[in-house]
């Protein structure tokens, strides 16, 4: 079994151009990106029979993410963040464009892509009557892992997230939302994904749980060879964790750079305070408070 501590089962790195990350890790830019989203478009038909209309959820998005990078996607509710994550997760088909994960086309080589990705979404979706162990054993078998090995790995991951072994045999419905989200993170990491898609993993968590999760993501960033795509409404979280951030508005990536460069850009060009809030307001045309005040359900339409 490959763990996150080991090298992923992907192509060996070739000597190539290298770029330092904000934590001075060396990110490989060897021509085979961890994730390539190339001119991708996705639209949905929404509304009833009388008021049917087409909504462009993702509009000609192009992103190239290097291996080992943490790439943040920020945007208002309904801006297209979750649709983008679902497209990469093979849960939606592309209207146009292409997506490659470590060189595998998600349409032509779907199974190969599925083996190297995993996802944590905002809602910790489990069989709530089952225990964490039973849920994790199910996930492990789906990915071809032996439950015994999965159990040991799960104990190790959850211990680092502050959940002891004795709590893992009780039904998940008896756990707090924060603990359920940590089990969701353990489920995703259990399969040793080389591309981890974190779709608002800390939304709705109490400050302590949020900190636990953020610290764990930092640990992953510093010690494991995993590429992470993170969507979040927490600007401080994005600033703290991400090597680069792309801001998506009405389905389009409107700006993309390192957090430092984005802050500097709004200070220089607009004379605003060099904060992530200024960046968010500038490129989405709204404040974070406006965004958080939106109906939560709208995010489901992302």
């Amino acid at each position: 079994m490959t763990t996150l501590l080991e090298q992923p089962k992907t192509e060996p790195m070739r000597p190539a151009a290298q770029a330092p990350s904000r934590t001075n890790r060396v990110l490989s830019d060897d021509g085979v990106p961890a994730l390539l989203v190339d001119h991708v478009t996705k639209q949905f038909v929404v509304g009833g029979r009388r008021k049917r209309k087409q909504v462009m959820a993702v509009n000609d998005v192009t992103i190239r993410i290097r291996r080992g990078e943490i790439y943040g996607v920020l945007g208002a509710n309904g801006s297209g963040k979750s649709t983008l994550i679902r497209l990469v997760s093979t849960l939606l088909t592309l209207d146009t464009g292409r997506v490659e994960v470590f060189g595998h086309d998600i349409e032509r080589d779907e199974m190969a892509v599925k083996r190297v990705i995993n996802r944590v979404s905002v809602d910790a979706a489990f069989f709530k009557k089952l225990s964490p162990f039973e849920n994790l054993a199910y996930a492990a078998r789906l990915y071809g892992m032996e439950p015994k090995a999965a159990r040991a790995e799960a104990i190790s991951i959850l211990a680092r997230l502050g959940i002891g072994e004795k709590r893992l045999s009780r039904p998940l419905e008896q756990m707090s939302r924060g603990m359920q989200q940590k089990v969701a993170i353990a489920r995703a990491l259990l399969t040793s994904p080389t591309l981890l898609l974190l779709d608002e993993p800390t939304t709705g968590l109490d400050p302590r749980s949020k900190l636990d999760v953020q610290t764990f993501i930092e640990e992953l960033r510093d010690t494991h060879d995993a590429t992470i795509v993170l969507t979040t409404h927490d600007l401080a979280e994005a600033d703290r964790l991400c090597d680069r951030i792309g801001i998506i508005n009405d389905g389009r990536i409107v700006v993309e750079d390192t957090p430092e460069a984005l802050r500097a850009k709004v200070a220089e060009e607009r004379g605003l305070e060099p904060t992530m809030e200024s960046v968010f307001m500038t490129y989405t045309g709204r404040s974070l408070d406006d965004d958080l005040g939106d109906n939560e359900d709208k995010d489901d339409e992302d």
């Binding site: 093979t90 849960l91 199974m111 083996r115 996802r119 979706a125 069989f127 789906l142 071809g144």
Partner: peptide, 14 residues
């Protein structure tokens, strides 16, 4: 109903 449909469908299982 449980919310696990997406997780099952994104797993590498035919």
């Amino acid at each position: 109903w449980e919310g696990t449909l997406e997780y099952t469908f994104m797993a590498p299982v035919r």
